[in-house]
Computed example of a mutant assay.
Amino acid sequence: MDAAARAVAEPTRREILHLVRHDERTVSDIAEHFDITRPAISQHLRVLADAELVTVRNEGTRRYYRARPEGLAELTEWMAGFWTSSL
C-alpha cells in the first residue's frame, strides 16, 4: 500500500493512470500528453509498475501500459475506513 500511495501522490502519475485506465498506451502516446521528455515518462511508468498500478505488455520493441485497478484496492480500502456512515 505504501508504494501505491507514494506513486499516486505525484500529479503526473495520477494523470498517466487516468490515460491508461481503459486502453493500453505506449510511452510515446502517453508522452504526447505532457510537456516532459519520454525518459521522464518512462521513469514515472516504472514507479507505477513497481507499485503494481499498471501492467506492461511487450510487443516487439514497444511496451504497452494499462492501469491495474486491483493495484489500488488496498489503498482504496484503507481510505474508505475514514468515511463511515456518521460522516
Rank of each mutant, 00 (worst) to 15 (best):
55 T>G: 12
55 T>C: 07
29 D>G: 15
45 L>W: 05
79 M>P: 02
65 Y>N: 07
81 G>D: 09
35 D>Y: 06
71 G>Q: 05
22 H>P: 03
74 E>K: 15
41 I>A: 00
67 A>H: 11
75 L>V: 04
29 D>T: 12
59 E>T: 11
25 R>Y: 04
35 D>W: 06
76 T>F: 10
45 L>I: 06
38 R>Q: 12
76 T>Q: 13
80 A>V: 03
28 S>W: 03
65 Y>R: 11
22 H>Q: 14
38 R>M: 04
44 H>E: 04
34 F>S: 03
71 G>H: 00
58 N>W: 04
39 P>W: 07
62 R>K: 14
23 D>L: 07
73 A>E: 03
26 T>Y: 01
84 T>P: 13
83 W>N: 14
71 G>P: 07
83 W>C: 14
72 L>R: 10
74 E>D: 12
74 E>I: 07
45 L>M: 01
67 A>R: 14
22 H>A: 14
61 T>D: 01
41 I>P: 06
56 V>D: 00
74 E>F: 08
74 E>Q: 15
47 V>H: 12
44 H>N: 08
36 I>G: 05
42 S>F: 00
36 I>P: 07
71 G>N: 08
49 A>G: 10
64 Y>R: 13
42 S>I: 06
39 P>L: 00
82 F>T: 13
23 D>Y: 04
33 H>Q: 08
53 L>G: 05
22 H>R: 13
83 W>Q: 14
25 R>A: 13
80 A>P: 01
29 D>M: 06
61 T>M: 08
76 T>P: 03
20 V>C: 05
57 R>S: 09
21 R>T: 10
68 R>N: 15
48 L>I: 03
48 L>Q: 03
29 D>L: 07
82 F>G: 15
62 R>I: 03
48 L>C: 07
67 A>Q: 11
34 F>W: 02
69 P>V: 02
68 R>V: 06
65 Y>T: 04
74 E>Y: 06
22 H>I: 10
41 I>L: 03
52 E>W: 04
45 L>D: 05
48 L>V: 02
62 R>Y: 10
59 E>I: 00
64 Y>L: 13
40 A>Y: 08
36 I>H: 09
29 D>F: 00
69 P>C: 06
